[in-house]
Design a protein around this nucleic acid. Structure first.
Length: 469
RNA sequence: CGGGAAGUAGCGCAGCUUGGUUAGCGCGCCUGGUUUGGGACCAGGAGGCCGCGGGUUCGAAUCCCGCCUUCCCGACCA
């Protein structure tokens, strides 16, 4: 590990550490307009890996990708009262185009329930057209007063799924399926981030939803981050956009719709969930570069060996890359550490003369010698071990920093440094206000065993309260 | 949007209080050489409308006003 840190230590100033990582790992830059973000190649490579993993799960769940326009007539937003009220403060609105003032202003989409609703109404005729399962990968704009790279930018990238169903039950079941099989599975299996899965309290619901589900992850500073959400929209949007179908009895009936999304915020979550004082730590299943092969000396024999090792790793399906061999050895090590590459293979004359290489894990810093012939199989095993270790470490941190408390006073105390778990009936109403006055919010409601409740009316629910991003 | 801090080379900063030669320093970058098992060293070099716009002045990085951007703390949110 680095002898002296090039990053602000987490313990000294966590937000500063985050910015240092974003800059020095070459993930992103601020755009020229306040709140906008330039995603650099390494950051985008990570996002592309996230997209691929999420997209595959979405398709497995039966939804199809489509694309709807960036521009939405302002009148569409107004059709659903809560929706327009919720989003109005964040809208970017185009009033002029083609050199003239527009007769009706155009909204830059903050989310696409409205346009998609309009087309669902057009496409759905019969119960045979249901369920209609759509998804789109797109950018959206929500004007932010306090932007932070990846976590909160005025323009961000995401995936938004929109579905229409014949019954409430079917819609609820599908939203839950997405939440479980797409989001939570991705977060646990790929991102190695354990989350608390539950429903949002009414005060935190999506504008226009009857129920919002969330995956709440714990960052290394003990704050919460909402990493994905799924909403049951009931018939609110179906009413606003006339999304009717003819049922088997030949009668017109209103659809039940859902929507669900995950954004580039996940990149910020990745940084803050696993990163340490030496930089980013990327879980192997996500990592665009899983193994970096570094020549200790710039000698042709050593360089040739590096190329051979990388080629053989690629041959067994490992995303390996040879370091460009510029600058001092120590500098190169540090750079790859900041980028969070899970596994490093160092190759030097000393190693080669004994027919082996040095392998170093990013998660633990542990070094080991590996016989050349065994590099491929060893790497595959160690990568999976790192994946598992990261998840377990994150889970342990989450559990150690989740404190069971009996009342709001204790929750206020406990949430200064982690999550507090408390009976929902202790918090509901005035308690929520008291927490909010100290910047602490109810992140989610769960059953006592951690499972997903049907709604907030269930008896004996517990909630997670915390400071959040 | 409210409260606080700040914008000077790619990054981090000094200079500003008390206006006055050619605006400095560290890191990085370029060239050459020596190096390379944990942020290497030597020599030479490039790089600035001092955030933007206006004002005061013989003269502005420095004083005044406006705007933009960034960071921290709130309210809003993925």
């Amino acid at each position: 590990m680095a002898t002296q840190s090039v990053l602000t230590p987490q313990g000294e100033d966590f937000p500063r550490w985050y910015q240092d990582v974003v800059a020095k790992a070459e993930m992103a830059d601020n755009g020229p307009v306040r709140g906008t973000m330039v995603i650099r190649p390494y950051g985008y490579a990570i996002w592309e890996r996230m997209q691929a993993a999420i997209d595959a799960r979405i398709k497995e769940a039966g939804a199809q990708n489509a694309y709807f326009p960036l521009f939405i007539p302002q009148s569409y937003l107004s059709r659903e009262a809560e929706h327009v009220e919720g989003f109005s403060p964040e809208l970017a609105i185009v009033t002029h185009a083609g050199g003239e003032e527009l007769s009706e202003p155009i909204v830059v989409r903050p989310t696409s329930e409205t346009v998609i609703g309009e087309f669902m109404a057009k496409w759905i005729q019969s119960y045979r057209d249901l369920p209609l399962l759509l998804n789109q990968w797109a950018n959206v704009v929500r004007w932010e007063l306090r932007p932070r790279l990846f976590l909160r930018s005025s323009e961000f990238l995401w995936q938004e799924g929109h579905t229409a169903h014949a019954t409430y039950e079917d819609a609820a079941k599908y939203a839950l399926k997405i939440h479980t099989d797409v989001y939570n599975d991705f977060l646990e299996q790929v991102l190695a981030v354990p989350t608390y899965v539950g429903i949002k309290p009414p005060s935190e619901r999506f504008a226009g939803a009857i129920n919002s589900m969330t995956c709440e992850g714990m960052m290394r500073d003990g704050k919460a981050l909402q990493m994905a959400t799924s909403h049951e929209l009931g018939q609110n949007f179906a009413k606003a956009f006339d999304i009717f179908f003819q049922n088997e009895a030949g009668q017109a009936a209103l659809c039940h719709t859902t929507s669900w999304g995950a954004s580039t915020r996940l990149v910020g979550g990745l940084i803050m969930a696993h990163g340490d004082d030496n930089g980013l730590v990327v879980p192997p299943r996500l990592a665009p570069i899983q193994v970096i092969v570094i020549a200790v000396r710039d000698e042709s024999e050593v360089n040739d060996a590096c190329a051979r090792i990388a080629a053989s790793l690629k041959g067994v399906g490992v995303r390996a890359q040879v370091d460009a061999n510029r600058g001092s050895f120590g500098r190169r090590l540090t750079d790859w550490e900041i980028k969070g590459v899970p596994l490093r293979i160092e190759v030097g004359p000393r190693d080669l003369s004994s027919g082996q290489v040095t392998m170093v894990r990013r998660d633990s810093g542990e070094k080991s010698l590996v016989v050349l012939d065994a590099v491929g199989e060893t790497v595959l095993v160690v990568l999976e071990s790192i994946q598992a270790t990261l998840f377990e470490a994150a889970r342990d941190r989450r559990d150690e920093n989740t404190h069971d408390v009996a009342n709001v006073d204790e929750a206020l105390e406990a949430a200064q440094n982690g999550f507090a778990r408390i009976a929902w009936r202790e918090v509901e109403g005035p308690g929520e206000q008291r927490l909010k006055s100290e910047a602490i919010t109810v992140r989610c409601l769960m059953r006592a065993d951690g499972s997903m409740p049907v709604d907030d009316a269930e008896e004996d629910l517990v909630c997670i309260v915390a400071k959040s991003y």
